[in-house]
């Protein structure tokens, strides 16, 4: 990885990330202040301040996230609430049969993905484990509507809390794998995530204002496709844009990348469900 070289070169040439190009707006959702900017965690060598993707969106898009009534994602959160109480599977149970209140999941979003019994697990894994092992129901597909509705509902319980994933101990090898993927160039266009989201955030790439590619707002409602988008679905989209064969949603590479990206957002508020273009 000749990352250092690239960074020095880019800085010398004057095209390094427009570190001042995010806006200075502050975000309050339903009156609660969100942290959209904070000091980068020590492991990020090339970035000093981290920003939520919200700071790079247009004022119209930003406004949609400030009020749950205006936020189009809440239609899907309500669908999540219906699914929460819906009996499914041979055990004839709903989520609500065992989990008293979805609010008990407050804080969970901030710590995922995490290592359980030697495996890196994402929220989708935890939900599907309950569906298959405890409800004897079919698992949900990683990025399909029922799953994103549920991850939005559960993630919402942590809204306003700081991202705080574990990267040491058992998580360390997964984190290293994610970091490696983040800096590896792929696709016919031969780019790494870092080329856009670290070296050039704050800059326009055709019609898009490049952000740091943070995942604190997922699942995200996108105006572009009018639905909730999973974290891995977004990774897949970025890979296809550079004409790279995406990794599998829910597979080990994307989960490792998710952990690494979460760790680049340590301290930002969970904004689930956020609104993006």
């Amino acid at each position: 990885m000749n990352l250092k070289k690239w960074v020095t070169f880019a800085a010398a040439a004057g095209f390094a990330g427009g570190a001042f190009a995010q806006d200075s707006n502050s975000l309050s959702i339903e009156g609660e202040a969100m942290v959209t900017e904070t000091a980068a965690p020590a492991h990020m060598e090339n970035v000093s301040t981290i920003y939520s993707g919200w700071r790079f969106r247009s004022t119209e898009t930003q406004a949609l996230e400030t009020d749950d009534f205006d936020n189009p994602a809440f239609v899907f959160v309500e669908q999540g609430m219906d699914l929460w109480g819906k009996v499914e599977g041979a055990a004839e149970k709903s989520c609500a049969s065992c989990h008293e209140d979805v609010a008990d999941f407050a804080g969970l979003r901030t710590q995922l993905p995490r290592v359980d019994d030697g495996q890196l697990v994402a929220m989708e894994d935890l939900i599907n484990e309950c569906r298959t092992e405890r409800m004897a129901a079919e698992p949900w597909e990683w990025s399909k509507g029922n799953m994103t509705a549920m991850t939005a509902l559960i993630g919402l319980q942590s809204r306003g809390m700081p991202i705080s994933v574990a990267t040491d101990g058992e998580a360390a090898p997964f984190w290293e794998q994610g970091k490696e993927l983040y800096y590896t160039r792929v696709g016919q266009l031969d780019m790494a995530c870092s080329n856009c989201h670290e070296d050039n955030y704050g800059v326009m790439i055709r019609a898009d204002h490049l952000s740091q590619g943070q995942i604190n707002g997922f699942p995200t409602y996108r105006l572009k496709n009018a639905k909730l988008n999973s974290i891995h679905g977004r990774f897949k989209g970025c890979m296809k844009n550079i004409r790279a064969e995406p990794f599998k949603e829910g597979g080990p590479e994307f989960k490792a990348l998710e952990l690494y990206l979460a760790s680049r957002g340590q301290g930002l508020s969970v904004e689930t469900p956020s609104v993006r273009n």
Binding site: N2, K5, W6, F9, A10, A13, T184, R185, V186, G187, Q188, L189, D190, M191, N195, C196, D199, N200, K240, R243, A244, E245
Partner: peptide, 27 residues
């Protein structure tokens, strides 16, 4: 430009994991 983000427009190998439709082709 060493390490540039700008794609190489006339190479047909040397990049990893291309989408199948683009493998072995130049932009």
């Amino acid at each position: 430009f060493e390490g540039t983000i700008m794609p190489a427009f006339y190479i047909d190998s040397g990049y990893e994991r291309p989408l199948e439709d683009f493998a072995g082709t130049s932009i």
